[in-house]
Design a binder for these strands. Structure first.
Lengths: 145, 145
DNA sequence: ATGCTGGTATTCACCCATAAACATTTTCTT
DNA sequence: AAGAAAATGTTTATGGGTGAATACCAGCAT
């Protein structure tokens, strides 16, 4: 299970160090794709497979479902970690997530997320720092700690 | 089950002594994460697992749920007690809970909570001194001792 | 009152992850 | 085919996390 927050930087060649704690669980091959909220999702191969199955089961007669599925598959790229523990992020994805130099990498349960440092800060100011508001919304899910 | 209130201090490297009464129950590995009300939660491994299952089951198509899940997982760090009875608190978490030198550690049933001494004082002044008002509100939950 | 013991704080030194600089290979272009 | 540019690989220095050793303190019992 992935968790934690790490700060790294992308080098001039678009490579990014993956936190050493994530490497083993990601394994040899994994999938980087466009994520929700303008970040990138990184799935280990088996997690990607389960996600793929779920996506497949969506009714492809509905326009929204088609768009959602296209979003994930078109944005996906198979990737691997080099001997220095880095991955190369395709430029399309770099642009999508507005990745410049400073990058935040977080573990979120079954996936890893890659954020532009600036966007992560914005996102947190909008949601994460205001945990009370989130907790309030969670009532809808009848969630308890 | 955790209970009690203890005063300790964080050293220059961000390490904190865990009260000896908590050590056995926390076990070898446990998880420290951002908690509600600006404190940190410390869960024994098995408690964290049950929490994780609940978090995983939340619909990731809902923005609020994503924010909530990110909040917990990105704020989480696996930790262990060193031979001196201390744990290392990641700087992200130290900042979140505004932990300076003086720290209050309390046991709350299934988890341990770590508070900045100042915030704990504030919190108690804001709420704790008015137990009767809180108890009054508890009626809504049909709670009885 | 004094010495003992368990727990706590501080200091220091080492090791590893990271990131930047550098070197090499490959590919594309002219 | 040769040179340039891009991609990939290697090396090294630095800083931070980590562990050990020592010094400190309080509580307790004799």
């Amino acid at each position: 299970m992935f968790m934690g927050e790490y700060q790294h930087s992308i080098d001039a060649k678009g490579r990014l160090i993956i936190p050493s704690k994530f490497r083993q669980e990601l394994g040899e091959n994994f999938v980087v794709t466009k994520g929700l909220d303008r970040c990138l999702f990184v799935y280990p191969w088996n997690e990607w497979n389960t996600l793929e199955k779920k996506l497949k089961s969506l009714p492809f007669t509905k326009a929204d479902a088609r768009a959602f599925v296209r979003f994930f598959f078109s944005g996906a790229a198979e990737s691997e970690i080099d001997k220095q523990g880095r991955i190369l992020i395709p430029s399309v994805l770099r642009e999508y997530a507005k990745l410049e130099k400073d990058v935040i990498i977080i573990g979120v349960s079954t996936r890893v997320e890659i954020w532009s440092s600036a966007l992560w800060k914005e996102y947190n100011e909008a949601t994460g720092n205001d945990y009370e508001a989130i907790a309030e919304k969670m009532k809808d899910f009848e969630f308890e700690l």
